[in-house]
Design a protein around this nucleic acid. Structure first.
Length: 469
RNA sequence: GGUGGGUUGGCGGAGAGGUUACGCACCGGAUUGCAAAUCCGUGAAGACCGGUUCGAUUCCGGUACCCACCUCCA
């Protein structure tokens, strides 16, 4: 069996991956807060974990992997959006407005991630479905002396957990010295964080031993991972920005609630996304969602390819140039594998690259080499390993039947003109193809065509009409 | 101020203590009515300063610059 190696944030090393139970490899990815469309940065951990899950299933078997990704549907941003709709005159109750907002956002999220070829996780728990478990875990943490109640809040006592800060390499004292922590008067220590907080009447809330309230952000992942994967599982991940405080706090909660379990063995964090060399932000005007790109005609497969062409632990720069290059490569490859059945297994070079800390860029290089050798079957099987060249994701690269028929007619006319040595006429058709976004290649076995990025069906029709004159 | 990451050829982007990464672009050749595509081939690199070593772009130390996190954030 091949050996997978992964860089573990906890150990700061690339370690051989050894599952707790090879028959049930368990992963948890921190999912989105469902208050708005997913932006491009949200897609990165999804694609990294998608690749990881595909690799784990390849190595350990399709049924031997359990992949959990949550939806955070308790959040002040969701509440704010619901309140905005209420103020705007909605007749629905606040609870109904919140449900409406989260439902539609989850629908968008599924549609957008599906478009990128990301497999759905085995479980997609919502925070609101696990309030009971969160309350129970909070109660347990108080009983074990790791949390305390103060003014309707329940706070985690960071000083009760000596390991606090280990994941992110910080010490509580250093962080306090940084003087950027919010000091609430009822906290024993400025770094203590909220497990439960009171809700006013205009906010969603649940009954608890500490009154009507709602959970803090971090407790949901501790409660849901324990419920679905158990207190000890294999891999936990997300963006590097979650390393602190979110994952640090999850570790504190889970390890204190289940002292012997160990929580997640491997912590996997992806670096952040940039756009044209700059941080993606609303203020810089370079902020966009996955849907924005899809609507602009950038195929999901192209987004996926660009994302995978940079190693997950490096900052990834989204540029128009990369998208154009990716599109050209995918068109060429799709042409190469058209009508070919995939080989029985992916190329060893591709598996080796992926096993080496998910070296997707190295795997893509190996795909290039397969393509250069003309090994279409190997290319197809190996690309499938990366979720590329999938049969159901190629419609963007294909012409409709009508366009195909028109192109065939024009190709026949050009051939006729060339036979008659009427090169002016033949070249006019060729130029027309180029203008319409149809790429024609004259090969030894006759002309082959494909669609270029700017394909224009109108221009093609006009070309057919012009030929009649 | 604290923590972590980065700096590779024209551009993108990997691995490896010594042997071509790979892709795009460029250049030369084959091919073509001329092209495009394709094929063959050439060239081009590792921020800076030290150290270890027979040998470092790869390991170690320092400097500079960049980025992220430390506050909701993937």
């Amino acid at each position: 069996m091949v050996q997978i190696r992964l860089t573990n944030t906890r150990t700061r090393r690339k370690d051989p991956f050894a599952p707790i139970d090879p028959a049930d490899v368990r992963l948890y990815l921190c999912g989105p807060t469902v208050y708005d469309r997913a932006h491009l940065g949200n897609a990165r951990p999804v694609l990294v974990f998608d690749l990881l899950v595909r690799l784990l299933r390849h190595v350990y078997g399709d049924r031997a992997v359990t992949y959990v990704r949550n939806f955070t549907d308790v959040d002040d941003k969701i509440n704010a959006e619901a309140q905005r709709r209420k103020i705007a005159g909605s007749a629905l109750s606040l609870e109904a407005l919140i449900a409406e907002r989260t439902e539609e956002t989850i629908g968008w999220y599924h549609a957008d991630m599906d478009a990128l070829g990301a497999l759905r996780p085995d479980h997609e728990p919502r925070a609101t479905e696990y309030i009971v478990q969160m309350v129970e875990m909070t109660r347990d943490l108080i009983a074990k002396g790791h949390a305390y109640e103060a003014e309707g809040h329940v706070l985690f006592d960071v000083r009760s957990f000596p390991e606090y800060g280990k994941l992110s390499g910080r010490s509580v004292d250093d962080m306090i010295a940084g003087a950027r922590v919010e000091v609430a008067p009822f906290k024993r220590d400025p770094m203590d964080f909220v497990l439960w907080k009171p809700s006013s009447d205009d906010l969603p809330g649940w009954d608890s031993p500490w009154g009507r309230g709602r959970p803090g952000w971090h407790i949901e992942c501790s409660a849901m991972s324990a419920a679905l994967l158990g207190p000890h599982f294999d891999i936990h991940g997300g963006g590097i920005d979650l390393q602190f405080p979110h994952h640090e706090n999850e570790i504190a909660q889970s390890c204190c609630a289940h002292p012997q379990a160990g929580f997640a063995n491997v912590w996997l964090h992806n670096e952040m996304l940039q756009v044209e060399g700059k941080k993606m932000s609303k203020s810089l005007g370079n902020f966009f969602t996955v849907r924005d790109l899809l609507d602009r005609g950038v195929p999901g497969e192209v987004i996926r390819f660009v994302m995978l062409s940079t190693h997950y632990r490096k900052p990834m720069d989204w540029t128009e140039a990369k998208a154009a290059e990716a599109e050209a490569v995918l068109r060429r490859w799709r042409g190469l594998v058209a009508g070919i059945e995939p080989a029985p297994s992916p190329a060893p070079a591709v598996i080796d690259a992926l096993c080496d800390d998910l070296n997707s860029a190295g795997a893509i290089a190996a795909l290039h080499e397969l393509a250069a050798k003309g090994d279409g079957a190997g290319l197809l099987a190996s690309a499938h390993m990366l979720g590329l060249l999938m049969p159901d994701m190629g419609s963007w690269a294909e012409a409709g039947d009508a366009a195909a028929a028109q192109i065939e007619v024009l190709l026949a006319a050009r051939l006729e003109a060339r036979k008659a040595r009427d090169f002016a006429r033949a070249d006019a058709i060729r130029d027309g193809f180029a203008a319409a976004g149809v790429e024609v290649k004259d090969t030894a076995s006759g002309p082959q065509w494909s669609l270029a990025p700017g394909f224009d069906p109108e221009a093609l029709s006009a070309l057919v009409r012009a030929r009649g004159r």
